[in-house]
């Protein structure tokens, strides 16, 4: 950082314009992305948030009035919302944990060269290329005992007493979308973790092996510390995405049976598009947003601590 040092001691004799160019460099680099994000996402977000305090029902010419905190009072008393919040925790927790665990295993399996690795990697990553609603439809199809094999397999190995559709069983329905989500999301973790694995200098492993470290020791003291920042950021982003990810649920169960698979995101979708109540939908979205912000602040804090230790 030669510029910084010379500027500090007042010995910078470069022309003013050149210094200005250097000082503005980071802003110039980030400006295009930032301008787009502000105009296409943050301004609409502000407008959307304002809906939370207004009576916004589409197709109703008399709506649009300011109603203060009425929507939030309604949320506090809305039993479906609280159930959906609980379901969101299950849905997100299981989906992220399983995707991460299987993604990490896959990344480790693919890290070392072997014959046919390119092909195996391409095939294992393929689910990511499948549009989410198409995979939802396809999994719903496979869970259906009339046209899909899964209930018969589960019955065959004795996990089910009869080949029924788990999507219509209130106790098991949530596992349908979760399994589809795990299938769809493993590649995300595998790709990012594999890229991180491959950037670990190979010399470190060689040196550790020469010093007599066991594979497990090498994993714990080389691989994990190098992966930790990537893990923290991908788990955080993924948690937020999955908490907001309604496609699979809307397509596969539509929140049923009896709201047992309704998560907050699908509930918002229902409020906005089935009942056209954009005001209430925005209010619920705000609550979800606040919860996720608290969660990510915790993770960002954790990541900073991890990076400092490195």
């Amino acid at each position: 950082m030669t510029e910084a040092v010379s500027a500090q001691y007042g010995r910078d004799r470069r022309p003013f314009l050149r210094r200005l160019a250097i000082a503005s460099e980071p802003y110039l680099y980030s400006a295009p992305a930032l301008i787009l994000i502000v105009t296409v996402m943050l301004v609409p977000l502000a407008i959307g948030i304002s809906y939370a305090f207004r009576d916004m029902t589409l197709l109703d010419p008399f709506s649009g009035g300011f109603i203060g905190l009425d929507h939030f009072r309604a949320i506090a008393k809305d039993k479906t919302f609280w159930l959906a919040l609980k379901n969101t925790v299950y849905w997100t927790g299981y989906s992220v944990a399983l995707q991460f665990a299987f993604g990490l295993i896959l990344a480790l399996l693919l890290d070392k060269p072997f014959y046919g690795r390119g092909l195996a990697q391409a095939l294992c990553f393929l689910p990511w290329a499948v549009p989410s609603f198409l995979s939802g439809l396809n999994w719903a199809w496979m869970f259906n005992p009339v046209v899909g094999p899964i209930p018969h397999w589960l019955y065959g190995i004795g996990l089910m007493s009869a080949p029924d559709n788990i999507l219509s069983d209130p106790d098991l329905a949530m596992w349908g979308p979760i399994i589809a989500n795990v299938w769809w999301g493993i590649p995300f973790f595998a790709i990012t973790l594999l890229a991180a694995l491959q950037s670990i200098p190979r010399d470190l492993y060689e040196a550790a092996a020469i010093d007599g470290a066991t594979p497990f020791q090498r994993f714990r003291s080389i691989t994990l510390p190098f992966l930790a920042p990537t893990i923290a950021i991908t788990v955080m982003l993924r948690t937020i995405w999955i908490a907001n990810f309604a496609d699979l649920i809307v397509v596969m169960t539509n929140g049923g049976p009896a709201d047992k698979t309704q998560i907050v995101a699908s509930y918002i979708f229902t409020q906005a598009f089935r009942r056209l109540d954009f005001g209430y939908a925005s209010a619920i979205a705000m609550v979800l947003l606040l919860l996720l912000m608290v969660y990510s602040l915790l993770i960002v804090f954790l990541r900073q601590t991890l990076l400092k230790e490195r």
Partner: peptide, 28 residues
């Protein structure tokens, strides 16, 4: 780079990941 406002830029970008995009449809 470390630069003034970086924290807020990162914060704003994270914020964009945290809400259901359904919320943006009508405004957009």
């Amino acid at each position: 780079f470390t630069f003034r406002g970086k924290f807020w830029i990162v914060g704003l970008m994270l914020l964009t990941q945290m809400f259901p995009l359904v919320m943006l449809i009508a405004p957009i």
